[in-house]
Amino acid sequence: MQYSIGVEYALHCLVYLIDIPEDSSTGIKELSSFQGISDTYLSKIFTKLSKAGIVSSVPGVKGGYRLAKSPDEISFWDVIKAVEGPKPIFQCKNIKDNGYLYKENCCSAPSSCTINIVMLAAEEKMRDFLRSKTLAWLNEELDVVLPKQMREETRKYFSKSDI
């Protein structure tokens, strides 16, 4: 199981949007430059985040993006679902139906796949955990684990109005 790097870029960029003034926005060029990635790639991620209602776009020359909700209302799972889509990680192919006993009509009782049930239950537990972690939590955690100067420089970078 692996989520794309787009999820990581999305979470990083979203946490940068927390501290910008409410009447302001941050452009894709600023965010992509700070991350060292192409603005085309990041724009595709932000299109998905916008469709999911996580960010809202601000049109115009000084336009960009801002959070569409409070950081405590945006969970890691919301971001993952927006970037990766909602389908389950485990895709049951009902391979039991191709087994010897089914082919020989020895066993025809339909049954739920126990493997699928277990995998889906495990995914639900993971989603519950990811739902419990929000952008507000991440922002507070970064204040603890990152050097204060790094956090201040990051905030300063995104508070510039003429980047």
Rank of each mutant, 00 (worst) to 15 (best):
K48C: 03
S112A: 15
S50D: 06
K103R: 15
I28D: 00
A82N: 02
D72G: 10
R127N: 06
A122V: 12
L130I: 06
D97V: 04
G27K: 07
E123D: 08
T114A: 13
S108H: 10
K69V: 01
Q35A: 12
G36P: 11
D78R: 04
V83S: 02
L120H: 09
K96I: 01
V118K: 14
I45C: 08
Y65P: 02
S32M: 03
R127Y: 11
G99I: 09
I54F: 03
P59C: 08
S43N: 12
A68D: 04
I80Y: 03
A82L: 09
A52P: 02
G64A: 06
A68I: 01
D78N: 14
C106E: 12
Y102I: 07
S111C: 10
S38Q: 11
S57P: 10
F129E: 12
N105M: 09
G60W: 05
I45K: 01
I115E: 07
Y100A: 04
S33W: 00
F34S: 07
Y100L: 13
V61P: 11
G27A: 15
D39K: 13
P59R: 06
V55T: 08
P59Q: 06
K133W: 08
S132P: 12
E104L: 15
I54N: 01
L130Q: 08
L49P: 02
V55C: 05
D128L: 11
N94G: 09
F129V: 09
T40Q: 15
E73D: 14
P86E: 14
G99M: 15
K103P: 02
F46Y: 10
V118F: 15
A121C: 08
K93C: 05
F90T: 00
Y100S: 08
E124T: 11
E123W: 06
A121Q: 12
Y102D: 04
Y65M: 03
I54R: 00
S32V: 05
V61T: 11
K44M: 11
G60Y: 07
T114H: 13
N116G: 08
C92Y: 02
L42D: 01
P59Y: 06
Q35G: 06
D128W: 10
F129I: 09
L49V: 03
A122R: 13
T47C: 08
S25T: 06
I89H: 06
C92T: 01
P88G: 06
T114D: 11
K125V: 09
S32N: 07
C113I: 02
D39F: 08
V79G: 00
S43E: 05
D72A: 10
L67F: 01
I89D: 03
E84Q: 15
K96D: 07
N105E: 15
C106D: 10
K69R: 15
W77R: 08
S111P: 03
D128N: 14
V61Q: 12
E104P: 07
S43M: 10
K81D: 03
L101H: 12
N116D: 11
G63R: 09
P86G: 12
A68T: 02
G85L: 10
S33L: 05
P88A: 14
G27V: 03
L120W: 05
I74Y: 00
G53L: 10
T47E: 09
T26G: 01
F34N: 01
D39V: 07
I80N: 02
Y65N: 00
D97R: 15
E84M: 08
K44R: 13
L120K: 09
S38N: 10
L49D: 00
K87N: 14
E73M: 12
M119N: 04
A122T: 04
F129H: 15
I37Y: 04
A122P: 00
I45R: 01
C113T: 02
